[in-house]
Design a binder for these strands. Sequence first.
DNA 1: CGTGGAGGTGGGAAAAAGTGGGAGAGATTA
DNA 2: TAATCTCTCCCACTTTTTCCCACCTCCACG
Lengths: 146, 146
Amino acid sequence: MITGEFRCSLDEKGRLLIPARMRAEVTGNVVILTRGVENCLWFFPPEEWKSFSEKLIGSTSLFQEESRLIQRRMIAPAQETEIDKAGRIVVPPTLREYADLKKECIILGLKKYMEIWSESSYQAYLDENEAKFKEAAEKLGGRITL
Amino acid sequence: MITGEFRCSLDEKGRLLIPARMRAEVTGNVVILTRGVENCLWFFPPEEWKSFSEKLIGSTSLFQEESRLIQRRMIAPAQETEIDKAGRIVVPPTLREYADLKKECIILGLKKYMEIWSESSYQAYLDENEAKFKEAAEKLGGRITL
DNA sequence: CGTGGAGGTGGGAAAAAGTGGGAGAGATTA
DNA sequence: TAATCTCTCCCACTTTTTCCCACCTCCACG
């Protein structure tokens, strides 16, 4: 998968158009959507989801509180959706509400998966975290050189 | 069974509509409902219930207090219900009250079984545990890489 | 500057899913 | 025994979803 930050739009029927450049990175026409961390959705190609979710499930049991939480919060909400002929996916209602998706969305490419944000939440997230980011970058500075 | 998070509704007669996607995963028209952990109901297809309950019974004895508790709390309340032609099940009153089911419910697919929540309890559960979840995710970060 | 193609957008029609309620059987109570 | 209530089954109506097609816009190229 490639990186990139693209504007994309959700129509009245809950269909989200995946920009052609991102779409080109997905083989087949099925993808997995689930709740991400920080009010965005995570978008996986099936192989990536399989390996990720199996790692996650492998380390959990229904009789442990933390495991149930992780399963309910990350695994359970995951749904397959198909990319239609026009390159759109239908975002299931509960996920749409979780990420507060409106017409204007942002899709972020992160190599192994993508993130879908409502444009306003994404903007707010970046604004709120700029200071934290600079700190994190500062820490990295000692270890990573350009 | 698949994963997924779906809204569904309980009507005045105590019938809960299982969304078509989830229903498609159940072979036959009989399922088992029982008390789950954290104010939700657990919903098993018969084969899964058989293997789960047998494991549970096999590892417990009537002469131990904890075992009796587990059996009374998980095994005893289990009831078979039929899926009707319209894809609904009747939720037995004691279970309905336990999970505090109102009109708005949520059904969660967790691969081997499903969970049925009242929408408000589910929302409350997620809200209350978001911080805990982020901590847990942070910890996993060290072990699970994408 | 026109034309063709790819990418993007919207909406209509058919099919599927979901909702509500009525009728009848069986149970319960006066 | 009659009257009433509850539960179940079934049917019909409504809403949602899905699939498909038509059109628009922008860019590349002749």
